[in-house]
Structure formats: C-alpha cells, structure tokens
Design a protein around this nucleic acid. Sequence first.
DNA 1: ATTTCGCATGCAACTTTGTTGCAAAAAGAT
DNA 2: ATCTTTTTGCAACAAAGTTGCATGCGAAAT
Lengths: 138, 138
Amino acid sequence: MEAQIDEILRKNQLSVTGSRKRILELFLMSNGALAHGDIEKKTGEKFDRVTVYRTLQTFLEKGIIHTIPTSDNSVLYALCKDNCSEGHHHDDHVHFICQKCAKTICLADVHIPQVKLPGGFLPHDYQMVVTGLCAACR
Amino acid sequence: MEAQIDEILRKNQLSVTGSRKRILELFLMSNGALAHGDIEKKTGEKFDRVTVYRTLQTFLEKGIIHTIPTSDNSVLYALCKDNCSEGHHHDDHVHFICQKCAKTICLADVHIPQVKLPGGFLPHDYQMVVTGLCAACR
DNA sequence: ATTTCGCATGCAACTTTGTTGCAAAAAGAT
DNA sequence: ATCTTTTTGCAACAAAGTTGCATGCGAAAT
Ligand SMILES: [Mn+2]
Ligand SMILES: [Mn+2]
Ligand SMILES: [Zn+2]
Ligand SMILES: [Zn+2]
C-alpha cells in the first residue's frame, strides 16, 4: 500500500508529503467515495482544513480522483479507476448511493448508456447516479 | 400566469403569500433550473434569505420542484413537469447543463435509460446529468 | 367586515463551509 | 549540507446554511 501510494504520487509528479499520503490512503482503503467532511473527520486534527481542500483540488486536477454529483450540497470524490490524466477524465461509469448507509460506490463495470439528445445540444460529459439500497442494507 | 401560480399553490394546500408567488413566478419564467443564489439575486432585497431557503424546502416537499445534482457544491432546482406529489417524485428525465452559459435545462422528453446493476443493488431513483454546450452556445 | 388562529416571515445570532495571503516548514534538487 | 521550490498552517475573511423566537399576514370562521 505504502509503495502504491508513492507510485501514484510520483507518477503524477507530485511531491510525497504526509497529507497527500494519508488522504490517498483513505481513498484506497474505502472502496467508496468520500466527501470533504469525511476526510476531515478521519484525519482528525492531523491536517489543516485548508490542506484537505487543496489536496483534493490537486488530486482532481491530476486525474487521481473524480467528483460525483449529489443533490445535497455536497461533492463526493472517488479514485479514478480508469487511466485518467490531467484535465481529461473518462470515468463513464454509474455511481450508486445507498440511502441507508449513505455509502457511494463506483460501479466501474456499469457503463453509462448513451442517450439521444434533441438537436442542437452538444454533449461532452455524462453522469449517472442511482440511489437505492446496497447489497448490505437491503 | 398569476392564475396559474395561485392554482399551483392552492392545489398543494399552501397559503398564497408574496414570496411563494414570486419564487414560483421565477421558476415559471425561466425554463431552466435555478440555484438558491439565483433566486436571491433575482428577488433582490425583497425577501429574507431564510425565507428563500424555507420556500424552496416547502416546494420540494410538496413536489412542486425537484433537485438536480451537480458536481460543484450547488443544488439546482427546477419545476416538476410531471405530476409529482408529496414525497413521490418521478422526474425521470435527463438534465443538461451548458458549460458556457451555465443554464440547466430539463430535457423532459429524454427519458433516463435503464441500466442493469450488479446483483444485490436495489435501485430506487435514477439521475442523469449531461454537460456540454447548448444550442445557443455551440 | 371583523375577529381569530395558525402558518409564514424577518431578524438576530450562530454554525458550517469554503477562500485567500502570507510566513514558516518540508521536499526535492544540486 | 545548502539552496530552491513547493506545500503547509495559520489567521482572517467571505459565503452559505441553520435555528429560535417575536411579529405579521392569510385564510377561515363568525
Ligand atoms: Mn467513480
Ligand atoms: Mn427536471
Ligand atoms: Zn448501504
Ligand atoms: Zn449555453
């Protein structure tokens, strides 16, 4: 794990620092998505709030994590499974949010189906979020 | 319009007040979605911020409006096109967010395609958001 | 039309969340 | 070990959202 973390950071030309290692570790451990608040809680007093914001921002720009839209004024982040690169994400998979345990899971194998849009619209990015009950909660 | 507004409020057993009329009018006028901030700006100093929060909350509960998830810590609201009722929304249409003009459009005619989820997941609600360029901006 | 009652609103105070500038500290390079 | 660049923490701030409570207004009853 330690080695994996280092590799990810190096591969993205990021210096290996305590906060980056820890936050990346959190993502690798939880197979789901994390909100900014989750990370703050789990890192405790270890890092400044601002550092968490900036680290997430950096990871996002480098394509290490991607965002998942939600309807509740929060943004979720999850590790990019595919080979995303700086500025070019392609996580065209469906996300599932459990209404009971609130876990968000990347369904990496479930691709987002294409839809036909009315004339004039030029689509660029598709997002699909399914809410319901996860296997553990149903 | 005035009549339409009154009817919507009455139908939902809501008393007809200034702020509710005004906010509903904003939704009827803009064919797109509105964020809380948009409404605050457009109503100017007319209503208290808290009233806007509470009005949106009420409309949401009554099924007059629905939310649209976004990836930027904002929630968008739009009029329910179908007959949504208290607690039971069924706006299974795709939403389009223009990256240039930032307008969000309900594609009421574009239904969200069904996807097959891995075993165990019990889906309840599907959301699909497409970003790109709208007809006016491309 | 007037009164009554409950719901809606405004205000104040507060909490939470996110941003920015800058100096100190830590990484990486030499 | 020293230098240079990047990252971090802190402080101060701005924006966004919440809550309790007194007042005002809408809708119904008289
Ligand atoms: Mn994902
Ligand atoms: Mn819609
Ligand atoms: Zn669950
Ligand atoms: Zn546009």
